[in-house]
């Protein structure tokens, strides 16, 4: 097996909140190989966005280490971090909020090159124009402001910005959630093409399991700050082992008649607070299969066939 491009080792992130600590990410270990896409799925508050921000070094982890291309970022010096930043880029959820409203598209795209001192003025402009064209936008758009573009166009700009430094990996945090379905397909196709063309690795984060499955080689499912199941895409989709994964698949509303006949696994109750997560298995209060043991003992991730799952009953 090749050395992973991104490796998270027992990463923990706690935030102080009123009345305690939010355990946003709790002991998560994940790996992404060069050129591979890891999908990360979970509902709001499961810690997936925190994880993305940890990987992007927007804040440091409380514990554990994050390695990119073998370098530990938690201990690396400024130069190494700067280098890492150009190798790992992010596409944000809200294409409007993620573009500075006071800068033209051209300026937004050129800025990373200026920051990293890449190329002269003319070279930078050529690169911006070439990339605009590659993401399906006309070069004239460089003179426009974000509010003059449609949602789909803005997200194309967001993708272009992430690619302008020739990264080796991109993190997509709910990159298509804010888009209408007809535009979503366009943006997903663009991501698929670019990924194949540039040999990019990716961390693809979404609450939508169907989209994650379509975009990923492997998928990890998070619940309340922990990874509860991780497997290759097909095993996870066809033979989900964790009751939460099964509930997620069943709960996704679908237009296809086949899906409507799927086994229904309705969860009870709401997501517990991450400030004081349940003892034992964190999923047990909502789990239709919970046993007395689940209340007492937290299950560790273990291998079952091709899958890693954290459930006593799998």
């Amino acid at each position: 097996m090749t050395a992973p491009l991104l490796e998270m080792r027992r990463v923990v992130k706690h935030f102080p909140a009123n009345g305690g600590m939010v355990r946003a990410v709790d002991d998560v270990s994940l790996q992404v190989a060069p050129g591979e896409t890891l999908g990360l799925v979970g509902e709001s508050g499961c810690g997936k966005s925190t994880l993305a921000r940890l990987v992007m070094r927007l804040f440091p982890p409380s514990d554990g280490s994050i390695l990119f291309d073998g370098t530990d970022l938690t201990t690396a010096d400024r130069a190494a971090v700067a280098e890492y930043r150009s190798g790992l880029q992010m596409v944000f959820q809200d294409p409007f909020a993620s573009l500075n409203p006071r800068e033209t598209i051209g300026r937004i795209l050129e800025q990373p090159l200026v920051v990293h001192r890449r190329g002269g003025r003319a070279e930078r402009r050529d690169r911006v124009n070439a990339l605009l064209e590659r993401v399906g936008l006309r070069p004239e758009i460089a003179a426009r402001y974000p509010h003059e573009l449609s949602g789909g166009q803005r997200q194309r700009v967001g993708i272009a910005r992430a690619l302008i430094l020739h990264p080796r990996m991109i993190v997509c945090d709910e990159a298509v959630s804010a888009l209408d379905v007809s535009v979503r397909a366009q943006v997903l196709n663009l991501l698929l093409e670019l990924r194949a063309e540039l040999g990019l690795a990716a961390l693809f984060i979404s609450h939508d399991l169907a989209v994650v499955r379509h975009m990923s080689d492997r998928v990890a499912v998070m619940y309340l700050g922990e990874v509860v199941e991780q497997a290759d895409r097909d095993s996870l989709w066809d033979r989900p082992l964790h009751p939460y994964t099964r509930a997620l698949i069943a709960a996704t509303p679908s237009t296809s008649p086949a899906a409507r006949r799927r086994e229904r696994l309705m969860l009870q109750g709401d997501l517990p607070s991450p400030i004081d997560p349940p003892r034992g298995c964190r999923f047990h209060p909502r789990c239709p299969l919970a046993q007395p043991r689940c209340r007492e003992e937290a299950p560790a991730l273990r291998r079952v066939g091709a899958t890693e799952v954290a459930c006593h009953l799998a």
């Binding site: 150009s86 992010m90 909020a97 409203p101 910005r161």
Partner: peptide, 10 residues
């Protein structure tokens, strides 16, 4: 997000 985006650009 655009501030975070700028931060991730280094």
């Amino acid at each position: 997000e655009f501030v975070l985006a700028a931060e991730t650009l280094g």
